[in-house]
């Protein structure tokens, strides 16, 4: 009884420490976005601001074409999700039906193709995009980002398909369905949760990425590129950046909460079962 209480308090203590570690930087973003400008221009703004002031948000909405950057980011992220699912889902289905050892090697191969620095693939891609008139477009950014996001997406999808028993589509085929029908009407339907998780992962990756985005769309930038360019110009720590950061973070936090609800162990671990 006593031991149980000690154990539980130790658990809450350890979890509390981890929660603090996780939440403190997020709190800083909120703090700096809302604190009065005079209090931010210090390396260590007071942890409790003297007043809340939406000045930074006001600056962002007034002086930057915020909406156009925001829409470009959104568009790109959705196209990346689309490309990743369209290419990743069928491929993942095939991989999930391979012998274990072969599928493991294919997955590792996919990850290894990413081991080249983004800048090294980004520059030739940018010149190719220029020829195809895809520079400064969301499709151009999305194509480049998809090639990096695909391995993780495929990995998660392999897990999703693995968690579906093969006998379901097999018995459908015995009843006269074609392989393709079995895939569309059975496996794909049952893998919807996993596909949803994969969509969010691809989306998050695109929302975050700025090296490729900067190379391919230097004129019409996504939000992370905009923030980075502000910082690179030596205007780092400007209230505007923090306001951008905040606007960029809030919707995504909601997304992560949804993600963790659906990202059950059978999906993320399924590829290795």
């Amino acid at each position: 009884m006593n031991r149980d209480i000690i154990r539980k308090s130790l658990w809450y203590l350890a979890m509390g420490v981890m929660a603090f570690f996780v939440l403190f930087p997020i709190y800083l973003i909120f703090l700096v976005a809302f604190a009065p400008p005079t209090e931010i221009f210090r390396p260590n703004p007071a942890l409790i601001p003297s007043s809340l002031n939406p000045y930074s948000l006001y600056v962002v909405l007034k002086y930057y074409h915020f909406l156009s950057h925001f829409i470009l980011s959104l568009e790109t992220a959705f196209i990346v999700s689309g490309i990743c699912i369209a290419l990743g889902a069928p491929a993942a289905y095939t991989i999930s039906r391979m012998p274990r050892r072969a599928s493991y090697l294919v997955i590792i191969f996919l990850f290894v193709t990413q081991m080249i620095p983004e800048i090294q693939i980004g520059v030739p891609l940018a010149s190719a995009m220029a020829k195809l008139h895809l520079l400064n477009t969301s499709l151009g950014i999305a194509l480049a980002q998809s090639s990096i996001a695909l391995p993780l997406v495929t990995y998660v999808l392999v897990g999703a398909f693995r968690s579906i028993p093969t006998r379901l589509s097999e018995s459908a085929q015995i009843d006269g369905a074609s392989k393709l029908q079995a895939f569309f009407y059975i496996d794909l339907q049952l893998a919807l949760t996993g596909i949803f998780v994969a969509v969010i992962l691809a989306w998050l990756f695109s929302w975050d990425e700025f090296i490729l985005a900067q190379l391919i769309s230097p004129l019409h930038t996504t939000i992370p590129v905009l923030i980075y360019q502000n910082i690179a110009r030596g205007q780092g720590g400007l209230p505007a950046d923090d306001a951008f950061s905040l606007i960029m973070t809030i919707p995504v936090i909601a997304l992560v909460l949804i993600l963790q609800k659906y990202m059950r162990s059978n999906i993320i671990a399924g590829a290795l079962k």
Partner: peptide, 18 residues
């Protein structure tokens, strides 16, 4: 614990630079 995964790298870098 999952929250940081949704925070963009630029954003986390700004937070950690403080």
């Amino acid at each position: 614990i999952m929250l940081p995964y949704g925070v963009a790298t630029v954003v986390s870098a700004i937070a950690f630079s403080f």
